[in-house]
Nucleic acid binder design. Structure first.
Length: 742
DNA sequence: GAGCACTGC
């Protein structure tokens, strides 16, 4: 069994103290059926009203069957469409029978879902949210020692598993929305399978999913029985095109206009792949419909994608415009990314336009690159999209591909994320959970061996694994952070470079997207505003400047707005920084400081970055192009970088494959530092490109020479003392930002 | 001088 060495062998878990309470309350209940078993209070009027509604749900009829199956089996698969009530009702039923001193966990892939479902169920049970029913998501734990039913994100349960590997605080674990196959759900599948063996008598597992995947789940869980709950949705009529479409975008626009001109009232949802397409489509649809004049009704065409600010996202919930002069009804048209497939549901949609594409992440282990590619969707996805038309009344779905394409070309299910991702972080988590033999680990869909090898290799170089592939003490500390292993490494080594706070800031900002805003109609102003934060050494230190300035302006949202800084990103980075800092102190990592006026201040920051990011570095070759140091890929600095010169060596955060191989978030470094920090990785013999290899040979010679002359090489600490009072000529702190005149 | 689907710890 895996023992968490940091925490000692006998970790104590918070036990839910309800058995005694339960006895007392049960006595009371015997005397009076109007008493809430969980609180001992009289039920409210609302309780009975809601109860009537609940009893109408299809899930209600499956209650006895649920009990029957769980009597015989440790794990069951529960299949139910939207509207069946499975997420809200099943956990409540399970509470009646399987809550003996332990709680029930129900996981969700998304935070909002965990929160809103918990709130709803607390109402249904007539209890206070956060008492008997609660939720747990990052940055917000709304539970107490009375909590017996907890909705949580799947990532949160995984975090708990690190300190409670047998999940002993739960008697039932429910994995909801399992068909979405998030990375975390897939890890939990494997983990639960092992935990079930260790707790055959006191753990029940319920896998809940929409249709399509049920059989696969049953098979994976030793032929678990299936409980099928009918959904409550309206029929959706499906239309296909006769011939393949030349341009799905044009086809989507014209189909939408036709629906508007000829179909009954009812809102339209159009699926496209990204921001640019969506904005273009909205413009065209609006202008084309205006051309049709008063013979058709007025439209409100609204875009929807995740990077849209929340107040604009809210517009999708506004109702259709009023009828026009001729009394023809108005219509709302939502043009959305995949976000409308799972995360956001819009009521009142009767027509869906589905061109059959979405942007999907793909991972190339050979190049170690994740990229986004517009690709055909799966049958499951197409069904999900069609279903969006039948939530309020019978609807229609227009698929902009042929029926034959649907049958023969679309795959059944979207490849699970675990087959499309860099797995360094997954492997570290699995190692931490005590799963050592990854090659034989029971993945529902085993990742490519090469992907696993890449992950193991990276973790080895980061010092998280030893030569045998065992988790090191250092790796164990790394796994405590909710970060990519590379970033955890940077944080842990920052103390050796005397820049813990700076690195905390940079790492926090690297884990949020979009620090800078650049609206299409104000690009010049945005670039001007950004200029005041620019540090010549690159994007990482520029981020640091932004954060410092944000703090100096008291985290003002107005200041962010006028300086084209994303306020939400900065606020969330601030939260993340606090969390990371807490983990650092829990791990007893001392915080260390360097005065910004110290000549080596920026060197230290960059060296700390190298300690984790050394695998992502590039060298300028004689012909003026960059080449990645180890894989010899020809790459270019992304135009959005603040670097306006071409340093010989650079470190990059992200490799994006679009029209070219681009490096994003880049910093100027020195080749010598690479060799000093990771001599093993930059051994010249391992470098393929001749030019780069020669450079490292030179560096190696130079370093060895220096070591020969000074056998007692100065430590960073000694160097720091030497430089303590040296004022830097290169000092560059945050310039005081001016307000932009508009 | 280009363009980033969606989550989550």
């Amino acid at each position: 069994m895996f023992v968490d060495k940091n925490l000692g062998q006998k970790q104590k878990y918070q036990k839910i103290d309800i058995s005694e309470l339960e006895q007392v309350q049960k006595k009371k209940v015997k005397q009076n059926v109007n008493i809430n078993v969980y609180t001992g209070n009289q039920y409210s009027d609302d309780y009975y009203k809601i109860l009537q509604v609940r009893k109408q749900l299809p899930a209600w009829d499956a209650k006895e069957q649920l009990f029957m199956l769980l009597e015989q089996y440790q794990v069951i698969v529960l299949q139910g469409e939207t509207g069946s009530g499975k997420t809200t009702q099943m956990p409540q039923f399970l509470l009646e029978k399987y809550c003996k001193g332990r709680g029930i966990a129900c996981t969700q892939p998304r935070r909002v879902a965990a929160m809103s479902v918990a709130k709803r169920v607390a109402e249904e049970m007539d209890v206070t949210l956060g008492e008997e029913v609660g939720y747990s998501i990052r940055f917000e734990e709304k539970t107490s020692n009375k909590t017996i039913l907890k909705y949580m994100t799947d990532g949160m349960l995984l975090r708990e598993a690190m300190h409670d590997p047998k999940l002993e605080r739960y008697s039932v674990v429910i994995l909801d929305e399992a068909h979405e196959r998030t990375l975390n759900t897939d890890i939990l599948f494997g983990l639960l399978k092992e935990v079930m063996l260790k707790r055959p008598d006191d753990l029940k597992v319920v896998i809940m999913s929409a249709t399509m995947d049920a059989e696969k789940f049953q098979k994976y869980f030793h032929n678990a029985p299936l409980l099928d709950i009918p959904g409550r949705v309206f029929p959706v009529e499906i239309f296909y095109t006769q011939k393949p479409e030349k341009s799905y975008l044009d086809a989507a626009i014209s189909t939408t206009i036709n629906i508007h001109a000829y179909e009954e009232p009812g809102d339209i949802l159009v699926f496209l792949t990204g921001e640019e397409e969506i904005e273009e489509a909205c413009k065209k649809i609006t202008s084309e419909i205006q051309k049709l004049g008063d013979d058709v009704g007025p439209v409100r065409c609204v875009p929807l994608y995740s990077t849209l600010p929340p107040n604009q996202q809210q517009k999708i919930f506004e109702s259709a415009p009023q009828p026009n002069k001729k009394g023809i009804q108005g219509r709302k048209i939502v043009v959305a990314t995949n976000i409308a497939e799972t995360s956001i549901t819009i009521d009142g949609i009767c027509y869906v336009v589905d061109p059959g594409f979405s942007k999907q992440k793909v991972y190339n282990p050979r190049l170690r690159v994740e990229s986004l590619l517009a690709s055909p969707i799966s049958k499951a996805s197409a069904q999900q999209r069609a279903g969006r038309a039948g939530r309020t009344r019978p609807g229609k779905c227009y698929r902009l591909y042929t029926e034959q394409s649907y049958n023969t070309e679309l795959i059944d299910n979207t490849y699970p994320e675990i087959l499309r991702s860099n797995l360094s972080s997954v492997v570290l988590q699995l190692k931490r959970l005590g799963i050592d033999d990854l090659v034989h680990f029971d993945f529902m869909d085993p990742p490519a061996p090469e992907t696993l090898m890449r992950a193991l290799e990276q973790l080895y170089y980061l010092g998280a694994l030893d030569e045998e592939g065992n988790l090191t003490k250092f790796g164990q500390s790394m796994s405590e952070f909710p970060l990519d292993p590379q970033l955890s490494k940077i944080l842990l080594s920052s103390k050796d470079f005397y820049v813990t706070d700076e690195i905390l800031t940079i790492v926090a900002l690297l884990s949020v997207q979009q620090v800078f805003q650049r609206p299409k109609d104000q690009q010049q102003q945005a670039d001007d505003a950004r200029y005041q934060f620019v540090h010549q050494d690159g994007d990482h230190i520029t981020f640091l400047n932004v954060f410092k300035a944000f703090k100096e302006h008291n985290e003002s949202s107005d200041w962010c707005y006028s300086n084209f800084i994303n306020y939400r990103s900065l606020k969330s980075a601030d939260k993340i920084k606090i969390q990371l800092k807490q983990i650092m102190s829990k791990l007893s990592i001392p915080s260390t400081k360097t005065d910004p006026s110290n000549a080596l201040y920026y060197t230290y920051i960059k060296k700390a970055l190298i300690s984790g990011m050394f695998m992502q570095t590039a060298h300028l070759t004689k012909n003026g192009a960059y080449m990645t140091v180890k894989d010899s890929q020809i790459v270019a600095i992304h135009p959005c970088s603040v670097l306006n010169h071409k340093p010989e060596w650079i470190l990059y955060q992200e490799f994006v494959l679009t029209s070219k191989n681009y490096l994003r978030t880049v910093t100027d470094i020195e080749g010598k530092w690479l060799y000093e920090i990771c001599p093993e990785y930059f051994n010249p013999k391992t470098i393929k490109n001749i030019e780069t290899r020669k450079e490292f040979e030179k560096i190696e010679k130079q370093v060895l020479e220096e070591q020969r002359r000074k056998p007692d090489l100065l430590t960073v600490e000694q160097i720091q003392k030497l430089h303590k009072h040296v004022k830097s000529e290169r000092t560059q702190s945050v310039s005081s930002p001016k307000t932009i005149q508009k």
